[in-house]
Design a protein around this nucleic acid. Structure first.
Lengths: 338, 338
DNA sequence: ATGAAAGCGCTAACAG
DNA sequence: CTGTTAGCGCTTTCAT
C-alpha cells in the first residue's frame, strides 16, 4: 500500500451502513435520536473500515471545541502535576479534554504558547500565574472564551482566578518560627525575575520579618526556576558560611529545602537542633526524608478541581461574573522545624 | 459587548489590508511569496483587529497538521518529563508542536487516549512503551502517520522504536553487585501487571541472578505505578523483616530506592555497610541524597531527541523503513553501593 | 427517526 | 507577486 491510503470518512461509513452521513454523525453523538439497531450497524461499519472520527472537521464546522488549553511552567513538578491531574479529572466528566503546554517559567515563552494554543480554538484556557506580557494579556482578553488564572491572586485578574497568596503562606511559616523562639531566620530562593511565585514568597518573608521587627537581610540566591535540589544544597553551603549563626531557613520549595537538608547532613549540622528548615509545596519527599520537612501545603490538586468546576459553570452559562476562588494553604509541621 | 462578538477571520484582515484572503494566508506562512510591504501591512491589520490564525481551519483544509501527539504514563515523572523535553525541543525547530496525553500507566486508558489523540489528526504519534491493547495497536497501525514506540524494545514494533532493554539494564547492576561480592540480592517492585517496564526490570533481575546461580526469590512487592517513595520505604521494611540477611537490593526506580534508604536510616541500618541499594532512572534525588544512590541512567532526554529526529526524517520522506534506535543505559556508581 | 442542502475558514491548484 | 475558484469532512438547519 505505497499510496498512503486516504482515511475513511463519514461518507464511507454511511455508504457501508446504507444510511446518510447525517445519521452517522448522530450515531457518534451521545444523545442523538438514532435507533439502537441503526447505531449498532453504523458503529460496526465504522469499525470494519477503521474509521476514526475527525475532531478537526467537527470542531471546525460546529465552531466550538471540546478541549481546554492549559499552560504550566514545567511538566516535571509534582505541584503543577497535581493541579493538572485535578483539572483533567474534573473536566473528563464533562467530556472535555485537556491540551497542555509548558512555558519553562518564562512569560515570553508563555506569550508564544498562549498564541499557539488559541490558534487551536480551545473552549477555555487556564494559565499558571497572574503575570503576563501585555500582548499575552490582550490575547487572553480578546479570546472570547473563559480564562482562569491559577496559583496566584492577581490584583487585576483577566477573568476567573483560583489561587492563594504566596506571600501570606510564607508569613504563616515566619510566624511559626518566631513563636518557636527563632529570630535569625533566612530565606533561600526567589531571587530570579522569572520566578514570579518565588519572588512573591520572598517578599512575603521580608514583610513578615519586618512586621516582627526582625532583620530580613539573610537572603540567599538559588538561581532561576526550576530550582534544583542541588541548588538548594549550594545555597545552604553559602548560608552557613555567610551567616553561620542562622537559626532557621525557609526555602522557596521542598526540593531546595531537601537539598539544603542534605548539605547540613554532609557537614554534620544538626537539623533542627542547630538550624530549622522549612519548605514549600508539601512534596512527597518532605514527608519521607529523615528528618521530615516542615512545609506549606497549597492544595495543588484542589486548585485544579476548583478550576475545572469554574470552567464547567462558565461553559454552561451558569457563571456570568468573573469569579475568584481563594485557597487557604496549610502549615504542615514536621521534624525539620518542630 | 454582550453578543460574544465573532472572532475576526482572514477575510476581515484581507478587507482591512485591501488584499485578497489568499494573500493574507500567504503572509502568515514562512516562505510564501509576498512582498515585504504587503506582508507588514497585513500583519498590522491583523494585529489591529486582534486576529488570531485559525489552525483548525488550516489543518482541516490542507489535510495535514502541525503537531505530534505523545502519550506518557504520568506527567509527574522526571524521566518522562526529560524525554518530552527533548522531544519538544527537537520538534520546535521544525515548527511542530507537541500534544501531550497521559495514560496513568494503564493500557486501557492508553487505548482511549490514543483514539482521542488520533481524532485530532496529528502528523505523527509517539507512545511510551511497547505493550498496547489489540485495538490500540490496530488504531496505530492504520493511522497512516509515523508511529514511534519509546522506552522499550518491543519484539514486534508497530513502526519506529527508540528505547532500551529494561531487563539488560538491570542485569548490569546485578553483575556489579555480584562482582562486588554481594550474593543475597533482593528486588523491590515490578509486581504490578500495569507496570510493564517494572516487570521487565524484575524479569531481568531474576534472569541475571539465575545466570549467576544465585537465589532470585527475594522479591518484594511495591504496588502499582507510580511507585511512591513511601512504598519504597514500606517495601524495605518488609524486606528487612522477611530477609534480614540481605546484602543488596535493587529498586525499580530511584524514588522507591530513596524511600528504601530512608527506612534504613530510621532503623539505623547502615547503607552501604550492611545493605547496598541500587535504583533506576538517575533522578536528581539520587545524586543529592546522603548517601548518594547507585543507579542506571537510561538517558531519557536522548530518547526524546532521537524520537524527534526520527519524526522529522519520517515527515520529510527521508525515512522509508521502520527504524529502531537502541539506547545503551549506563550504570552510575555512587555511595549507596560502592 | 432520518435525509438534503449549505457552509464553517482556510488553502490547493491554477491563472495571470 | 497576487487573485479566483473550489472544496476539505463534518454539522447546522430545515424538511419529511
Amino acid at each position: 500500500m505505497n499510496p498512503p491510503k486516504r482515511q475513511p470518512t463519514m461518507a464511507d461509513v454511511a455508504r457501508r451502513a446504507n444510511v446518510s452521513p447525517m445519521t452517522v454523525s448522530r450515531a457518534f453523538k451521545r444523545d442523538a435520536s438514532v435507533s439502537d439497531a441503526t447505531r449498532e450497524a453504523i458503529l460496526a461499519a465504522a469499525d470494519d473500515l477503521g474509521y476514526v472520527f475527525d475532531s478537526t472537521a467537527s470542531n471546525f464546522r460546529s465552531q466550538r471545541s471540546d478541549f481546554v488549553a492549559v499552560t504550566i511552567p514545567s511538566i516535571n513538578n509534582a505541584n503543577f502535576a497535581d493541579t493538572v491531574g485535578g483539572l483533567i479529572e474534573g473536566l473528563k466528566e464533562s467530556g472535555l479534554q485537556t491540551l497542555l503546554g509548558y512555558t519553562n517559567y518564562d512569560i515570553q515563552e508563555e506569550e508564544r504558547l498562549i498564541e499557539q494554543l488559541l490558534r487551536r480554538r480551545p473552549c477555555a484556557i487556564v494559565v499558571t500565574g497572574g503575570k503576563h506580557t501585555p500582548r499575552a494579556r490582550r490575547l487572553l482578553e480578546n479570546a472570547g472564551i473563559p480564562v482562569v488564572e491559577t496559583w496566584d491572586l492577581p490584583a487585576a485578574p483577566i477573568g476567573h482566578v483560583v489561587g492563594f497568596s504566596n506571600a501570606a503562606a510564607v508569613r504563616a511559616m515566619v510566624d511559626h518560627f518566631v513563636e518557636a523562639g527563632r529570630r535569625r531566620i533566612a530565606f533561600i530562593g526567589g531571587d530570579a525575575d522569572r520566578d514570579t511565585r518565588g519572588t512573591d514568597r520572598r517578599a512575603g518573608f521580608v514583610a513578615a520579618m519586618e512586621a516582627h521587627g526582625l532583620d530580613a537581610s539573610r537572603l540567599i540566591a538559588a538561581g532561576a526556576p526550576p530550582i534544583s535540589m542541588r541548588e538548594g544544597a549550594e545555597a545552604m553551603a553559602l548560608l552557613l558560611e555567610r551567616f553561620p549563626d542562622t537559626e532557621a531557613v525557609i526555602c522557596v520549595s521542598d526540593l531546595s529545602a531537601f537539598g539544603a537538608l542534605t548539605e547540613c547532613q554532609r557537614r554534620g549540622v544538626p537539623v533542627p537542633g542547630r538550624i530549622a528548615i522549612g519548605g514549600f509545596g508539601n512534596y512527597e519527599i518532605g514527608d519521607v526524608c529523615v528528618p521530615s520537612l516542615t512545609t506549606i501545603d497549597p492544595y495543588p490538586r484542589l486548585i485544579g478541581e476548583e478550576t475545572a468546576g469554574l470552567i464547567r459553570q462558565a461553559l454552561s452559562g451558569t457563571l456570568t461574573e468573573p469569579t475568584r476562588i481563594g485557597i487557604s494553604p496549610r502549615l504542615v509541621l514536621r521534624e525539620s522545624a518542630s
